[in-house]
């Protein structure tokens, strides 16, 4: 406890494990730290458990998955020890989510305005005018033209890129200290991706919000993050500053991931996927660890 007062992380995850009801672990002893104002990328192939970490922090893990061990500490507050009520309040107070698919993340039957303003009024207790002004300010900030009109629109009247920019505005509106960005560019086409990435980076710098950026794209990692956590099969393979990961990757999987990322610099280079032997070996390693862990449990 005394340690926290010395240095308060925006987010600290200690030895987090998540399992299916049948006991199969999807997340294995994951630990990571996120400093205030820092962007940490969570990379890995699909199924590596990177989204699950974000969901656990936000308390929106599907009911079928259970946290078997580990702690989540948000700004020095232990979420595990809270009642669901205070936990919900705390998470809403500190965090926000930029979702993956902007097409399903807005209520199709409600206008844009209330969807941004409502949480500010009902959860934060802001005045109506203040909330509206804040929404307009942020919509302008994410380059929405005619924000007044957009607030009166329904989601189906807007493009996917516009909806993602609106969701970014909505995420930053209550000035959260931690944003979980869950593959926010995956569902968008490439030209829009760049713009969205740039917006998140700019707003993050301006506000000093810490961001947990979930992605499978090493190119995105290089552009946005200061720290990287590389995941494979729910296990942390490497945890290092981004620059170091790209210049001198310590783990063979990280090296293979970087090599597999196409780059515009040398288009002639043949496409090199992560070697199957490496994946097989990593899986075997994870299985051995699991067996050991099972043994320890008994």
């Amino acid at each position: 406890m005394s340690q926290q007062t010395q240095h308060r992380h925006a987010l600290e995850i200690i030895n987090l494990s998540i399992a299916l009801p049948n006991g199969v672990r999807l997340l294995r002893d994951v630990s990571l730290k996120l400093e205030p104002g820092e962007v940490r990328a969570l990379v890995g192939e699909s199924g590596a458990g990177k989204s699950m970490i974000g969901k656990t922090v936000l308390g929106i893990l599907p009911d079928t998955l259970k946290i078997t061990q580990g702690e989540i500490i948000l700004e020095g507050q232990h979420l595990n020890m809270m009642t669901p009520w205070t936990r919900r309040k705390t998470v809403a107070e500190i965090t926000a989510l930029i979702p993956q698919d902007p097409l399903t993340a807005l209520n199709p039957l409600r206008k844009i305005g209330p969807q941004i303003v409502d949480p500010l009024i009902r959860i934060r207790g802001w005045e109506k005018d203040r909330a509206r002004a804040r929404a307009l300010e942020l919509l302008e900030r994410v380059h929405i033209r005619a924000p007044e009109r957009v607030m009166q629109s329904y989601p189906h009247e807007l493009s996917g890129g516009m909806r993602q920019r609106i969701l970014i505005a909505a995420a930053f509106a209550p000035s959260p200290r931690l944003i979980v960005a869950d593959e926010p560019t995956t569902a968008l086409d490439v030209t829009v991706q760049k713009e969205i990435l740039k917006l998140i980076r700019e707003l993050q710098k301006e506000t000093g919000t810490a961001v947990l950026f979930v992605t499978h794209d090493m190119g995105v990692v290089a552009k946005i993050s200061q720290q990287v956590t590389v995941l494979f099969a729910g296990k942390v393979m490497e945890d290092a500053p981004t620059r170091e990961v790209f210049t001198n990757p310590a783990h063979p999987y990280t090296r293979a991931l970087i090599a597999a990322t196409p780059s515009s610099a040398d288009l002639d280079r043949p496409f090199s996927p992560v070697p199957t032997e490496l994946i097989a070996e990593l899986h075997a390693q994870v299985a051995r660890d699991d067996a050991l862990w099972q043994g320890k449990k008994r």
Partner: peptide
């Protein structure tokens, strides 16, 4: 199970509020 209700949950609304304010209108159609 849809994303917009998840987002409302993250924003701090209770499950009852999520149902009545967000999901009900869509489910009623």
């Amino acid at each position: 199970l849809k994303d917009y209700t998840t987002l409302t949950r993250v924003r701090g609304f209770t499950e009852t509020a999520v149902i009545l304010r967000e999901a009900l209108r869509n489910a009623a159609l």
